[in-house]
């Protein structure tokens, strides 16, 4: 057995085991991680076939998509209270098993009969080398031969994006502006806002009574009461 075959069987075995793990794992986050492992191994098989561009895109696109899936799982699913854990969703179980069996039958028949063969393209290694590499060859075909399907797909994605934006919009436009508040953290010591007398900003002096009140609030800790920060900092002087 050549080295290539050994590496392929390792990749394929890990890929299949991870795919089984997706189905049998009880924790949805674990299932998502298994999906990522499966895709990763598929990408590695793509590399072995010489389709590096496809492998990189597989990792970038599916890794990003799975990340969002993991996020949704963490945010929206309670892993301890899934309906599947206490015999919920009977219809889905039956339909899932049925569809799985049909797919298995189809794939099995195709493998046994070897009838499922696609027409061989004209992309020989020499031709691919002539345009610069697999990525370049794919680009030429995608943007020349398949330009129209490509544009239709991008249009469908655009509709999806617009739909998401419409769903996320507030009920009435302009509503969000009324709610906007400034967030300024002053970082003053605790208790000062109770003790300070109310008055015009920066003008009311801190009286002896205020000091006593805050001292009682703060116990033994030394407290600096600052109304006017400029009193304590001098411009241009470095200490």
């Amino acid at each position: 057995m050549t080295l290539d075959a050994i590496v392929f069987y390792i990749l394929a075995a890990v890929c299949l085991l991870a795919a089984v793990g997706v189905v049998v794992s009880r924790n949805p986050v674990h299932a998502a991680v298994f999906v990522v492992i499966t895709f990763f191994n598929v990408a590695a098989i793509f590399v072995m076939l010489g389709a590096e561009f496809l492998a990189a895109v597989q990792v970038i696109v599916y890794a990003g998509a799975m990340l969002v899936l993991v996020l949704f799982t963490i945010m929206l699913v309670d892993p301890d209270n899934l309906p599947e854990l206490h015999a919920g969703r009977p219809v889905q179980r039956v339909v899932g098993v049925l569809l799985g069996l049909i797919l298995l039958l189809e794939v099995g028949l195709a493998i046994i009969n070897r009838t499922f063969t696609a027409p061989t393209g004209n992309a020989t290694p020499e031709l691919i080398g002539l345009v610069g590499g697999p990525a370049q060859a794919m680009g030429y075909i995608l943007y020349n031969q398949y330009a129209l399907p490509f544009e239709i797909v991008s249009l469908v994605l655009l509709v999806g994006v617009i739909g998401a934006i419409v769903l996320a919009l507030p009920e009435r436009l302009g509503e969000q502006f009324g709610l906007r508040r400034g967030t300024i953290s002053l970082g003053h010591p605790r208790g000062t806002e109770v003790a300070l007398p109310t008055g015009p900003d920066g003008e009311a002096p801190i009286t002896e009574a205020d000091r006593k009140e805050t001292a009682a609030l703060e116990g033994t800790r030394e407290l600096i009461l600052v109304r006017d920060p400029d009193k304590y900092t001098t411009v241009g002087e470095r200490r």
């Binding site: 561009f53 990189a56 990340l67 990525a135």
Partner: peptide, 15 residues
Amino acid sequence: DLNVGALFLLAFGSI
């Protein structure tokens, strides 16, 4: 010298 080296770097950044 990967044919898609730059994409490889970006892909593992997202991993």
